[in-house]
Design a protein around this nucleic acid. Structure first.
Length: 1142
RNA sequence: AGUCUCGUAGCUCAGGUGGUUAGAGCGUUACACUGAUAAUGUAAAGGUCCGCAGUUCGAGUCUGCGCGGGACUACCA
C-alpha cells in the first residue's frame, strides 16, 4: 500500500485498505530484519516453552486445512512469546509410508509386483526419496505466506540416517525390555497380490462391494457328556448346533462355535430338509421364526413321511448361552486336527448377535479376527487349511470332492483355469455318482455345501448379498489370513498410559477423556510390521531356524556386528551408508553360536517415525542430550482430531514406555475443515479451497482470523470463502478506519505520542476512562482465555471491543473533540486514549493476525522508536512480536463506569427508536426525556453520563422521576430464580397472585418489604421484596420505550425555538455537504451567502454564531438574489446558497 | 457395529450451576445519517431450540430412547 503522506514525520496515511499488499510488505520486512529469529533469540533460554511440530508429508500439496492447524500452532507459540517465553520451533517432514510408494508407482505405471523385476528396490527407493520432497518448495512458500513461524532451515526428516538410527535405538530399548515381540494376527490379505493390506488400503473408495455368496446353515453334532446331557431327551437323540456362514470354505478350518452369554437358545425337534432324517437343532430363540414357518406349526412329528415338503417341528427346552459354554461337538469336516489347544467346544463371545444367522457363530480362528481373539482367550487351537495363494492345502484331501490345491474363491481363477477345473469336476462327480452331468464350474463353497448336504450336515443354503472387501489393486476379494508380525506390547503399560493421560490438558476435554481415553481402555498391542519397501526397517536379524535373533540399536553396533560377520566369513567388509532397503537387507550377521542371520523383512509402521520425533529430531541418544532434556516433554502440540489414534497416541505410548512420562502437557485437536455446505472437501467434488488463492485474494490474516473466530477450533469448520470477505470488511475495515481517523487528525494537530508525558487518568474524561476500563477488561479476558488455549472467545471479545465499543461508541462520541479547536490538554488525552486502545488491541490480535498487527504497530510506533529506545520505554520494540504482553491493570477497571455507559447506550438506543417511530430526525432538537429511576444509585449513574446521552440523541434535558412524582406506572413480576427456591410446588399459585397485584399492592410491598399472600385453598405465603422484580414500564400520556429495566419517555413537542435550532442545524449540514462537494479542505475558511427566505430567516439570524463556527464561515450574508448559487433542500423547502472560499 | 461429537433464525454461531419475552453477527426489507463516507446508525420481518418420553412448580439447558450430519476404530458368522 502506498503511503499518502510520504515524507511527513507523522503517522502514515493510506488510501483504500489492501491487506494482501500489507502482508507482502510485512513479510519482506520480517525477512530483512530477521524478526522471527529475534523473537526466539531475544527471549531467555531459562524460560522455554516447548513446542513440537507434527511433521506433514511433503509429497502432496498443502490444503486450506493445513492453514487451520498451523494457525493454531503459530498462534499459541506467538502468544507465549509475548508472555516472555522462548519458543523454539523446529520444522519436520514425514517422509515414509504407503502414499509415497503409491505416488511413485503411479508415475512409473508399475505395481508392487514389478518391484525387484522391472525396477530394482534401490532404484524404487531412490525415487521415493526424491518424490517425498517434491512439494517442499510449495510447502515452504505456503508456510511463509500464511505467516507460520517455524524454523525450516534445520528440519528433522524421518528418512535421514540419523533419524532412523534414533528409531533403532528406541526399538532396541523396547526389545531389551521385552516389549517388542513376534506374533501373528489375522489381517486383510490379498492372495492375488500376495500381500497384506492396511486398513487404509481397504478404505479406498470402491473396495467394499456388494457381492452374492453362497451361505450355509450347518449342523454340528453335539457330543453327549455331563455338560450336554440336559439337551438330550433320549439316549439316541441326534442333537446339533446350527451355525450360519457366508464363507463355507472356512468350515474345514472350524475349531469352535460361539454363543452369546445372555442370548436364549431353544432346541427344536424336526427333520433335515435334504435327507429327511430326524434331528434336534439348537439355535437362538429370536431367530427361530426365520427357519421354521408358522404354517407348519400344526403338523405332527409322528405323521411325517420322508420326502414331504412341509416339515413339522416341535420346540423343546431352552437355555441361555452361558449354559451351553463348554459343550463339545463332533468336528464337521475332519480332514485334520489342530495340533494345539482344546478344540471343538462352545465358547461365549461378546460379538455374537441375533441380527442374522442362527445366533451361533462358526469360529475359524485363522480367518477372522474376532474368531482369532475369542479362540485365543479360550485356549482353542486353529487350523489354517488355506495357503498364501488362496488354495486349500494338501491336508484337505477329499476322496470325492476336489478341494486340495484348489482356490477358495472363484475370482482367483482365470477363465482358462476355470474351464479346465470344470471338466475335472464333471468327471469326478460323475464317476462318484453324485452329479451325472455337471453343467458349470462349482466353487469351493458350492462343493463344500454339496458335501455337507450329502452327509446330512446341512440345514439350509442360499445366496446372500453382502458387503465384502476387495483388493484395490487386483480387484479380487480379500480374505482374512494369519500373518506374522512384530508387535510392541503396549498392553503392558496400559494402566500407566491411562493414568498419565489424565494429566494432559486436552482441548477439547472430551477428546482426551472420550475418544482417546476409550481407545486406551480397549488397547491392543501395536502391530508394527509393514511389508513394504520405503520405510524404516526393523533392526532385527534372525537365524534361519528362528532360534537366535539380534536387535541392533545403532549404526556403530551394526558395523561391529558386520565386522564379526566378516570374520565368520558370511560377508565382505561393508560400509553402511543408508539404513533403508535394500542395503540393510544385504547385511548378513552372525549369531552368537555362529549361524548366519538375515534381517526380518518387515518395515515399521510410519506412525512410529512420527511418534518418536521428540527423541529422533535431536538424534538422541547419540547427540544433543542437553537439548533433548530441555525440550522434553512438550508444553504444547496441536494437530487435527484425526491424529488422536495416530500421532497423539504414538507420542504418548513411546513417552510412557521409554521415560514413564507424558510427551505433551497441552494438546489442541482441531476439527475438520468442510466446505460451506458441510461436505468434506475433496478433489472429486471439486470443492477444495486453494490456500494460496485465499491468501492472495483475501490475505492470510483474514483467513486466520475467520478460522479462529468462527467456531471453536475443535468443531468442524464450514469454510465459506465469503466469510473471508466479511472478516476483512467488518473487523479489519473497522480497525483500519479507526486508525485512519486517528492518523488524519493526529497529523493535522501534529500530535505525536510522548511516553514520558501522558495525561494522567484522573484528568481524562468519563468517556476516556470508560474505554480504558473496557480495554483493561478485555486484556484480562483475552489473557485468561488464551492461557487456557481457548482462542475463539478471545477473538470474539476483541472483535466486539473494536466494533461495538471503540469504533461505534468511543470514536463516534469523541469525533468533535478531535476536529474542533486547537491542540489542548483534553485533545491530547483523547489522542492518547485512542492510541492506547489501538496499540493494545493490535498486540492482543497479533498471535492470530500477525501481519496486520505488525503493520498497525509500526504505523503507530515507528515515529517514536528512536526516542523510546533512548528512554527504554515500552515502544522501543521493533516488532509487535517482540513486545511483552500488556498485563491487565486493575486500577483502570471501573465496574460502575462500564455499567453506566451501558445504561447510556441503552437509553440512546431507546430514544432513537422513539424518534424513529415519530419520524423526527436526530438533527431536530427535542426538549426533554423522562427517565424513571428506581434507586439513587441508578440516578447517579445516569447523571454521570447525561451529557453523552443528550449529545447523542440531541435532546435538551433529562428529567429523572421517582416514586414521589406519582406518575410512574409500575409492573411487578416474580423473580423466579429466588422465589423458586422457597415456593417450590406452590410456584404456580404464587405467580398468579403476584401477577394480579394492583398498584396499591405494589406500593405496599415496597413500603413494608414483604407481603403475605393468601393462596387458593387457604394457604398463605410470605413474599419478600427480593422475591419479586418491580419495573416501571409505563408513564401514562408519554411516548415510552423500555428494555431490561430501563424506561425512557420522550417529549416530542417541537417549540418554535427548537424548530429554529433544527433549521439551523439542517443548514449547517447542507453547507457542510457543499464544502465537501466543492472539495474544500477541512480547515478552509468560507463565506456563505443566502437568498432571503422568510421560513429560515429567524433561524439563520438567531444561530448565526453557531452556524459560522460549525462550517468555519467568516460571515453569513442574507441577500435578495444570487447570480450563482446552489439550491439545497431544507426540510422540504428550497434555499439558494452560495459557498465560496474566503 | 462400537466410541466420540454436533443438531438453536435463511447462513455462521452465543446461550456457567434448570427460572418464564431464547440472543448476536451476516443476509433481507425499510428508514436515517453524511467532516470516519467504497464508512456508519436505527428499526422490522424471521424460531415446533431435531423428535418422543421422563424428572421438575418450571427444560434450549438434566435423564432415557430415537432421527439426522460428521469423525475415528473395527468389520461380522
Amino acid at each position: 500500500m502506498e503511503r499518502k503522506n510520504a515524507g511527513s514525520t507523522g503517522y502514515p496515511e493510506y488510501g483504500q485498505m489492501n491487506m494482501p499488499s500489507i502482508e507482502k510488505q510485512i513479510l519482506q520486512w520480517w525477512k530483512e530484519n530477521k524478526i522471527f529469529e529475534r523473537s526466539v533469540s531475544e527471549r531467555s533460554e531459562d524460560k522455554p516453552f516447548v513446542f513440537y511440530e507434527g511433521p506433514p508429508s511433503a509429497n502432496g500439496k498443502p490444503g486450506i486445512h493445513h492453514v487451520m492447524s498451523r494457525t493454531i500452532k503459530d498462534m499459541f507459540c506467538r502468544y507465549k512469546t509475548l508472555q516472555g517465553f522462548r519458543v523454539e520451533r523446529k520444522a519436520g517432514w514425514d517422509t515414509h509410508g504407503l502414499p509415497v510408494e503409491l505416488n511413485v508407482e503411479k508415475q512409473l505405471g508399475i505395481t508392487k509386483a514389478d518391484i525387484g523385476t522391472k525396477i530394482t528396490i534401490a532404484e524404487y527407493n531412490r525415487l521415493c526419496r526424491e518424490d517425498v520432497m517434491r512439494f517442499t518448495d510449495v510447502w515452504n512458500d505456503m508456510t511463509e505466506k500464511m505467516g507460520y513461524w517455524v524454523d525450516m532451515n534445520d528440519p528433522y526428516i524421518t528418512y535421514e540416517n540419523n533419524y532412523i538410527e534414533s528409531l533403532w535405538s528406541i526399538l532396541k530399548k523396547l526389545y531389551d525390555k521385552g516389549l517388542l515381540y513376534e506374533g501373528y494376527t489375522i489381517q486383510p490379505y490379498s492372495p492375488a497380490a500376495g500381500t497384506g493390506l492396511s486398513s487404509h488400503e481397504l478404505n479406498q473408495p470402491g473396495c467394499y462391494r456388494n457381492v452374492k455368496d453362497v451361505t450355509a446353515v450347518v449342523e454340528f453334532k453335539i457330543k453327549k457328556d455331563d455338560k450336554s446331557a440336559f439337551l438330550f431327551e433320549s439316549e439316541n437323540e441326534d442333537v446339533r448346533f446350527m451355525a450360519w456362514t457366508t464363507t463355507p470354505w472356512t468350515l474345514p478350518s472350524n475349531t469352535a462355535l460361539a454363543v452369546g452369554a445372555g442370548i436364549e437358545y431353544v432346541k427344536v425337534k424336526t427333520f433335515n430338509p435334504y435327507t429327511f432324517e430326524p434331528v434336534s437343532v439348537v439355535l437362538a430363540k429370536d431367530l427361530f421364526g426365520k427357519y421354521f414357518s408358522a404354517d407348519n406349526a400344526e403338523l405332527k412329528l409322528e405323521d411325517y413321511k420322508k420326502g414331504d415338503k412341509a416339515i413339522p417341528y416341535s420346540t423343546g427346552l431352552s437355555a441361555k448361552g452361558r449354559e451351553l459354554e463348554g459343550i463339545r461337538y463332533e468336528q464337521l469336516l475332519p480332514y485334520t486336527q489342530p495340533t494345539d489347544g482344546d478344540a471343538f467346544r462352545v465358547l461365549v463371545g461378546d460379538f455374537v448377535t441375533t441380527t442374522d444367522g442362527t445366533g451361533i457363530v462358526h469360529i475359524a480362528p485363522s480367518f477372522g479376527s474376532d474368531d482369532f481373539r475369542v479362540a485365543k482367550q479360550n485356549g482353542i487351537g486353529s487350523l489354517t487349511l488355506v495357503d498364501r495363494q488362496g488354495k486349500f492345502v494338501e491336508e484337505v484331501n477329499d476322496a470325492v470332492f476336489p478341494l486340495e490345491g484348489r482356490y477358495v474363491k472363484e475370482a482367483y481363477l482365470t477363465d482358462a483355469e476355470k474351464e479346465q477345473e470344470f471338466h475335472l469336476q464333471k468327471e469326478i462327480l460323475r464317476v462318484n455318482n453324485i452329479i451325472a452331468d455337471l453343467k458349470s464350474y462349482m466353487t469351493a463353497d458350492d462343493l463344500i455345501v454339496l458335501k455337507l448336504k450329502l452327509e446330512n450336515k446341512l440345514f439350509k443354503t442360499e445366496k446372500y448379498e453382502h458387503n465384502y472387501p476387495h483388493c484395490w489393486r487386483t480387484d479380487k476379494p480379500v480374505i482374512y489370513y494369519p500373518l506374522d508380525s512384530w508387535f510392541i506390547k503396549t498392553t503392558a503399560v496400559k494402566d500407566r498410559l491411562i493414568e498419565l493421560n489424565k494429566t494432559i490438558n486436552w482441548k477439547p476435554a472430551h477428546t482426551g477423556e472420550g475418544r482417546f481415553g476409550q481407545w486406551l481402555e480397549n488397547l491392543v498391542d501395536w502391530n508394527l510390521s509393514r511389508s513394504r519397501y520405503w520405510g524404516t526397517p526393523l533392526p532385527l536379524w534372525i537365524s534361519e531356524d528362528k532360534t537366535e535373533e539380534k536387535c541392533i540399536g545403532s549404526l556403530a553396533e551394526l558395523q561391529a556386528e558386520i565386522a564379526k560377520s566378516v570374520t565368520a566369513g558370511f560377508m565382505r567388509p561393508y560400509e553402511v551408508t543408508d539404513l533403508h532397503k535394500p542395503q540393510v537387507d544385504e547385511i548378513i550377521l552372525v549369531s552368537d553360536t555362529g549361524k548366519p542371520m538375515k534381517r526380518v523383512a518387515d518395515l515399521i509402521d510410519v506412525w512410529f517415525d512420527s511418534g518418536a520425533m521428540p527423541y529422533a529430531q535431536w538424534h538422541f541418544p547419540f547427540e544433543n542430550e542437553e537439548k533433548f532434556k530441555k525440550s522434553y516433554p512438550a508444553d504444547f502440540i496441536a494437530e487435527g482430531v484425526d491424529q488422536t489414534r495416530g500421532w497423539f497416541f504414538t507420542l504418548h505410548v513411546l513417552a510412557v514406555m521409554l521415560f514413564d512420562s507424558v510427551a505433551y502437557k497441552n494438546v489442541v485437536s482441531n476439527g475438520l475443515l468442510l466446505d460451506k455446505k458441510g461436505e468434506k472437501m475433496s478433489k472429486r467434488l471439486g470443492n477444495v479451497v486453494d490456500p494460496f488463492e485465499a491468501i492472495e485474494k483475501y490475505s492470510a490474516d483474514a483467513t486466520r482470523w475467520y478460522m479462529m473466530r468462527n467456531s471453536d477450533p475443535w468443531e468442524n469448520l464450514k469454510f465459506d470463502i465469503n466469510g473471508l470477505q466479511d472478516t476483512m470488511r467488518s473487523h479489519y475495515g473497522t480497525l483500519y478506519n479507526t486508525y485512519a481517523f486517528f492518523a488524519l487528525y493526529a497529523n493535522l494537530d501534529k500530535f505525536v505520542i510522548d511516553e514520558m508525558n501522558i495525561v494522567p487518568l484522573s484528568e481524562r474524561t468519563e468517556l476516556d476512562r470508560w474505554i480504558l476500563s473496557k480495554l483493561q477488561t478485555l486484556v484480562a479476558y483475552v489473557t485468561e482465555r488464551m492461557n487456557d488455549y481457548d482462542v475463539t472467545p478471545a477473538a470474539r471479545a476483541i472483535e466486539a471491543f473494536v466494533d461495538e465499543h471503540l469504533s461505534n461508541w468511543y470514536v463516534r462520541l469523541s469525533r468533535r473533540r478531535f476536529w474542533k479547536g486547537e491542540m489542548s490538554r483534553d485533545k491530547q488525552a483523547a489522542y492518547e486514549t485512542l492510541y492506547e486502545c489501538l496499540n493494545v488491541v493490535t498486540q492482543l490480535m497479533s498471535p492470530v493476525s500477525p501481519f496486520f498487527s505488525e503493520w498497525m504497530y509500526k504505523n503507530l510506533t515507528d515515529v517514536v522508536r528512536d526516542k523510546a529506545k533512548a528512554n527504554n520505554t515500552p515502544l522501543q520494540h521493533d516488532s509487535v512480536h517482540l513486545t511483552y504482553l500488556t498485563t491487565p491493570d486493575a486500577k483502570y477497571i471501573d465496574q460502575d463506569l462500564e455499567e453506566r455507559m451501558e445504561l447510556a447506550q441503552k437509553a440512546c438506543s431507546l430514544i432513537f427508536s422513539l424518534r424513529k417511530k415519530e419520524k423526527i430526525k436526530v438533527r431536530q432538537p427535542l426538549g426533554k426525556v423522562l427517565i424513571p429511576v428506581l434507586s439513587n444509585k441508578m440516578k447517579e449513574q445516569l447523571q454521570n453520563v447525561e451529557s453523552y446521552i443528550l449529545g447523542e440523541v440531541n435532546v435538551k434535558e433529562i428529567e429523572y422521576i421517582d416514586d414521589a412524582s406519582g406518575i410512574i406506572k409500575k409492573k411487578i413480576k416474580p423473580n423466579f430464580k429466588e422465589l423458586g427456591k422457597r415456593a417450590g410446588t406452590k410456584m404456580k399459585a404464587v405467580q398468579n397472585a403476584v401477577m394480579a397485584f394492583t398498584t396499591d399492592d405494589i406500593a405496599k410491598i415496597e413500603a413494608e418489604q414483604k407481603y403475605v399472600l393468601n393462596l387458593e385453598g387457604g394457604d398463605t405465603f410470605e413474599l419478600t421484596i427480593a422475591d419479586v422484580e418491580i419495573l416501571s414500564e409505563d408513564i401514562p400520556g408519554w411516548l415510552v420505550a423500555s428494555d431490561a429495566g430501563l424506561t425512557v419517555a420522550l417529549d416530542v413537542t417541537i417549540t418554535d425555538e427548537l424548530r429554529k435550532e433544527g433549521n439551523a442545524r439542517e443548514f449547517v449540514n447542507k453547507v457542510q455537504n457543499l464544502r465537501k462537494d466543492k472539495d474544500f479542505q477541512v480547515l478552509d475558511r468560507i463565506k456563505v451567502s443566502v437568498v432571503k427566505n422568510a421560513t429560515f430567516e429567524e433561524a439563520l439570524n438567531g444561530f448565526k454564531d453557531y452556524i459560522c463556527n460549525e462550517v468555519l464561515a467568516k460571515e453569513i450574508v442574507l441577500v435578495e438574489s444570487l447570480a450563482e448559487f446552489d439550491e439545497v433542500e431544507m426540510n422540504e423547502d428550497m434555499l439558494q446558497v452560495k459557498v465560496e472560499l474566503n
